[in-house]
């Protein structure tokens, strides 16, 4: 989540071995997020992290960390800032791509972004999302919001299998992946994994804890 500690945390994540860093631009009413991300968003908003401040934060991280950065946000921010202007400014500030959690593939097709598909998505929608996506396809492992879970979702394997038949783009699995064991298991199926809530929880303990956690994930994927 964008905030005063983001540069330090992004450095730590990069040292731990992250290949991509997602930076949340907080929204007041994040429908796709569970309690951990929601709490982080509330804190960020209380600290004044509005769109301009988030773009500044992104720019600063981009200057100091040599890992691709992907902002994740919600449609309301783009609506207020201007869709095209947002797309331009976020890239100008150093974003490699963009994720908009409440924007299904058929909405605003002109906005180039990483598309998400879910276990409930039809083959037709998985195919369309794969065609439209910017680089890799985000596989949401569960029907549910972000948040830590005790088990890797059994819905991931069939979703990967379906997606493989429909596309050659890299598949990254996220939502609910919380431990190195789960990361390892998900990494057997997908080409990459996305860890949100569990990383935020580690980051609450400081940058050293985050670096350790990312390194454990990295190791589990090796």
């Amino acid at each position: 989540m964008a905030g005063p500690e983001t540069v330090e945390l992004a450095r730590a994540a990069a040292r731990g071995g992250a290949d991509v860093i997602e930076i949340g631009f907080p929204f007041s009413d994040p429908l796709a997020d569970g309690p951990v991300v929601r709490r982080a968003a509330e804190r960020a908003l209380a600290a004044g992290m509005r769109t301009e401040a988030c773009l500044d934060c992104l720019r600063e991280v981009h200057d100091q960390v040599a890992v691709p950065l992907v902002p994740m946000t919600y449609a309301s921010l783009l609506e207020a800032y201007g869709w095209e202007r947002f797309a331009t400014d976020v890239r100008e500030a150093g974003a490699a791509s963009l994720i908009v959690a409440d924007l299904p593939v058929d909405a605003h097709p002109d906005l180039r972004r990483i598309q998400l598909v879910a276990p409930t998505s039809t083959d037709e929608r998985v195919g369309l999302a794969a065609e439209q996506t910017d680089g890799w396809l985000y596989l949401v492992t569960v029907a549910g919001t972000t948040g830590t879970r005790s088990e890797l979702s059994p819905a991931l394997a069939p979703l990967v299998a379906r997606a493989r038949k429909l596309t050659d783009v890299p598949l990254y699995a996220g939502f609910g992946i919380s431990t190195p064991e789960q990361a390892g298991a998900a990494g057997e199926l997908a080409d990459g994994i996305v860890v949100g809530s569990a990383a935020l929880l580690a980051a609450e303990e400081g940058s050293a804890a985050l670096e350790r956690f990312v390194a454990q994930l990295r190791e589990a994927l090796a």
Binding site: D102, P104, V117, T120, R125, V140
Partner: peptide
């Protein structure tokens, strides 16, 4: 329109 996570679209 529909501004929701993809999970809900089929529903």
């Amino acid at each position: 329109g529909r501004y929701v996570p993809e999970t809900l679209i089929p529903a």
